[in-house]
Write a protein that binds this DNA or RNA. Structure first.
Lengths: 263, 263
DNA sequence: CGGGTGCTTGAATAGCGTCAACTCTGGTGG
DNA sequence: CCACCAGAGTTGACGCTATTCAAGCACCCG
């Protein structure tokens, strides 16, 4: 099954041969993958493990794959072989339904893991689409599993990674099920801010890689509502907005936005 | 930290001593736990593994614990030691927020796993509260982990279990973010129906263990809205309702409820 | 028998979605 | 270089859905 495909284009089979070629070329890149010198090591599931001098992680990394903006790393229904660590760029994960109902379930940036939705059934449950030209480390799951059986600490990290995703989704359910529109947008911005900060970037100034529509799909809102709430936060002096550039002016107040009355 | 406590009562320390005693008594029950004769074996993470004659699973099960209706199996903030397999009864999982905002993130019935929200941080991220008198198998996580390193198949099952929860939560995000009230209730009933069926019970007739308010919290709706939608489904002849007793009359139509127009 | 809880139903309201107009930007091709 | 177009974003007016508030019934338990 094809794993590479246009993201925004609805028609699937425009140039099958060429896409196949692109995929092969990408997967052939084996470059200089060295986990010990990776900038994302601290965040990666295979990051520095204190117990060992650690040439080990490299063993699980099969290579690097690049994905261009709008193309998919994998699609729902693709057979599951590997998980991926984002080296550079960013992705969105989208779950679909019959009759065009769709939901953006997550944004992944450098240091995040992708593909774990395929573990349970052996088939990916969502599409992972690059928001910009991106690259990932490919980790065949069978290799990762055997590494888990050998090295206790890596086993623990993988379990933590899976469980962390469960907790993250729980708070997203809280957001979707119980928060008002303004609160959702505020939480979204604070969350992004903290994630950039954890990666060594500025917490108060960053660029959105996604459109208003994508933010809306993630937050359970329409794009117009997202736009209105962003405007409102700006009018209230909590953020400064210029298109996709966001500056957070008052993080404390932003963090404390709640529905005014709540018993 | 206390792990046993009243569920519906807001005041925490009414009878600390007694609750501590209750907990100890419960944890002492070691009874006749035998995974090979367990009715839930097919659904359990430690269920029958074809590779081995399997006296092994028993090794990870430390004992049985009973939890009375309204009491908690664990609470957010409790230190994480074990995961649990529900033997009998049912639980709700609740995540909380400052200022009283809360969201029900899941219902767990016989065969489901509980407690995995504690793996990532070593501290439970939600409350697990019994909806009726219930009992669980206690599996200390360190035992489960070492079993994973020994037996490939159990490792695979545990990974599948964790990943399945991720996928399940993704579809709940789809529900919360993109579905109308009627659709949410319909999906909820179909899901419950299928889960009872997977456990050998009737798919078309079952009893809700939870209140309308709890269903509402799970679906991101108010209890009045849940009530109205249930009434509507009944008027449309898709289900028959008598309080908490539900009969599904037209599963196919129920499964196909969508927002009428969706481009 | 009284009081609490759960559930249903109605009427009014608020919040978000829908529709539409308009601007701005980036990319394409003449 | 400019005309053109498609997509992204903003804003306003209006409508609909779900919430809020309120009343009333059924049930359980002390």
């Amino acid at each position: 099954m094809l794993t590479e495909n246009g993201g925004s284009v609805p028609s699937r089979p425009p140039a099958l041969r060429e896409q196949r070629l692109v995929q092969t070329r990408e997967q052939r890149q084996r470059l200089d993958v060295d986990c010990n010198s990776c900038a994302m090591a601290q965040l990666c599931a295979l990051g520095p493990c204190d117990a060992q001098p650690c040439e080990r992680p490299n063993r699980a990394v099969h290579g690097v794959r690049t994905v261009r903006r709008g193309q998919s790393l994998y699609r729902a229904g693709d057979s599951f072989q590997s998980v991926y660590a984002v080296r550079a760029g960013s992705f969105k994960r989208v779950v679909m339904h019959r009759d065009g109902l769709e939901q953006l379930t997550g944004f992944d940036i450098a240091g995040d893991m992708l593909g774990i939705d395929g573990i349970s059934t052996g088939t990916h449950a969502c599409d992972a689409i690059a928001l910009e030209d991106s690259s990932v480390c490919v980790m065949p799951f069978v290799l990762l599993q055997s590494l888990c059986r050998e090295i206790k600490e890596i086993q623990h990290r993988v379990h933590q990674m899976l469980a962390a995703e469960i907790v993250r989704e729980s708070s997203q359910m809280l957001l979707l099920g119980a928060m008002m529109a303004e609160e959702r947008v505020a939480v979204f911005l604070v969350d992004l801010s903290e994630r950039w900060q954890a990666r060594g970037y500025s917490a108060c100034s960053f660029t959105l890689k996604m459109t208003r529509r994508e933010i809306g799909s993630y937050l359970g809102l329409k794009l117009e509502t997202v736009s209105r709430m962003i405007t409102k936060l700006q009018k209230d002096g909590l953020i400064a907005v210029n298109g996709k550039d966001i500056r957070i002016l008052d993080p404390d107040t932003l963090r404390n936005i709640t529905a005014a009355d709540r018993q």
